[in-house]
Amino acid sequence: MTNVIQTTDNLKENRGPKLSTYITGFASSIFLTLIPYFLVTNHIGSTYVLLTVILFFALLQMIVQLIFFLHLGRETKPRWKLAVMISFVGIILIIVGGSIWIMAHLNYSMSLLQLNNLMQYGEGF
């Protein structure tokens, strides 16, 4: 009887997060915030390089917080949370990427003259 209870206790202890997990997550999050901040305030690198780098740091920090704060890595075998998250991230990528792509293309393809004609003689958009 005590044996069974002990094993369930062990199971709980192993599944639960520890103090070291939170401290690691907190410390690395601070670093991942400060590094892009100093890169931007000191204007290190060209615009596009800097843009890529700070987005990369944001993604990295998201992964760090998902693992250390939201404990996504501790989930047991049918990883439903992870599956739901991946499918939703797919939807978000399509919406965000698609919107930016379409709107940038719209701005690029339409000259100012065309725009003026549309506004003056046409019905507008």
């Binding site: 892009p36 901040y37 931007v40 305030t41 204007h43 615009t47 800097l50 843009l51 700070i54 987005l55 740091f57 944001a58």
Partner: peptide, 9 residues
């Protein structure tokens, strides 16, 4: 990142 840091680039 997208609102504040990108304004500083």
């Amino acid at each position: 990142t997208i609102v504040y840091l990108m304004s500083g680039i």
